[in-house]
Amino acid sequence: MHIQNVEFLVSAVSPAQYPEPLIPEIALAGRSNVGKSSFINAMINRKKLARTSSKPGKTQQLNYYQVEDWFYFVDVPGYGYAKVSKKEKGKWANMLQTYFSERENLELALLIVDFRHKPTKDDIAMKDFFVHYNIPYFVIATKTDKVKKSQWSKHMSEIYRTLNLETVDQILPFSAETKEGREEAWEIITDVLQGAFD
């Protein structure tokens, strides 16, 4: 997939700040520091459009990136960071609930998990949230370059079982470093935007 025009559009905390819902949206959800920004950068072949940080919990707003005139990537605040106050966590939870339950042009949620580790309770809760609100979702397992290929099957099975998925095919191994899974991710996104996702 060759993408030429991508721009950071806006950081939003409430529906009043969201862009007009004129094109579809694909949301990226995952725990802090799991690699959502790196995923976006790898997908669009840019090094620094989506801001990455070594400081977990830094993304505290919905960051909108417009891809061509085709769709928005929406990077949502990372969850599960212990040093964030309960009050701040509550604000984030309300922001995400409002976004995921009300945004009419949200076509797909990508649940970003770390391939190296068993999904967390927060990952499970996020997946259950998508199911509850009937939001199509797909699991992107990042940082596959950190795991030996001989161990992949074991890690895939652990993610599949922990998230209680219907099929292991709902998981896409991905590496922002090697671009493993990039073309497959574009196929998923294209299918969704063309109405062919099941």
Results as ranks from 00 to 15, higher is better:
S101V: 00
S85Q: 05
Q17I: 03
Q4W: 13
Y79K: 03
M43Y: 00
D145G: 03
M1P: 15
G57F: 01
I140Y: 11
S32Y: 01
E107T: 05
I189A: 04
E177L: 11
K91W: 15
I44V: 03
L62V: 05
A12T: 04
S157E: 10
F129W: 15
G78S: 06
K121I: 04
E184L: 12
I189H: 02
K83W: 00
P19R: 08
N164L: 14
F138K: 05
L49I: 14
W186Q: 12
F100K: 02
D191N: 13
A42M: 08
F197Q: 08
Q60A: 09
F138D: 06
K179Y: 00
S157H: 06
F39T: 07
V34K: 03
K148V: 07
N105Y: 05
M156G: 06
P21H: 04
F174D: 13
R116A: 02
S101P: 01
I140Q: 12
A12R: 14
A125R: 10
A196D: 09
G78N: 02
L110C: 11
Y160A: 00
K149L: 02
K87L: 09
W70M: 09
F73M: 15
P24R: 02
D191P: 07
S157P: 00
E187F: 07
A109M: 10
W186K: 06
I3N: 13
D123S: 03
A93I: 03
H155K: 14
P119A: 00
Q97V: 09
L28H: 01
K146T: 02
S153F: 09
P15C: 08
K55F: 12
L111P: 01
E166C: 04
K154R: 14
N63T: 11
N45C: 08
Q151P: 00
W92F: 13
P21K: 00
L28M: 02
N45H: 09
Q17P: 08
P24E: 06
K179S: 08
T144D: 04
T52Q: 04
L172H: 01
S53K: 03
P136T: 13
E25W: 12
I140F: 14
K179M: 06
V139S: 02
D75Y: 01
N164R: 13
S11H: 11
S101K: 03
S53N: 09
K91F: 15
Y81S: 09
A141Y: 01
T178G: 11
D145Y: 04
V10L: 13
V67Q: 15
K86W: 04
F138A: 05
F197H: 07
F8V: 08
P136Y: 07
M95P: 08
Q151R: 10
E166P: 00
F129K: 11
E183S: 13
S53V: 10
L9S: 08
E25H: 13
P136Q: 05
L110N: 11
S101M: 05
V74R: 01
N5D: 11
T178A: 12
K127C: 14
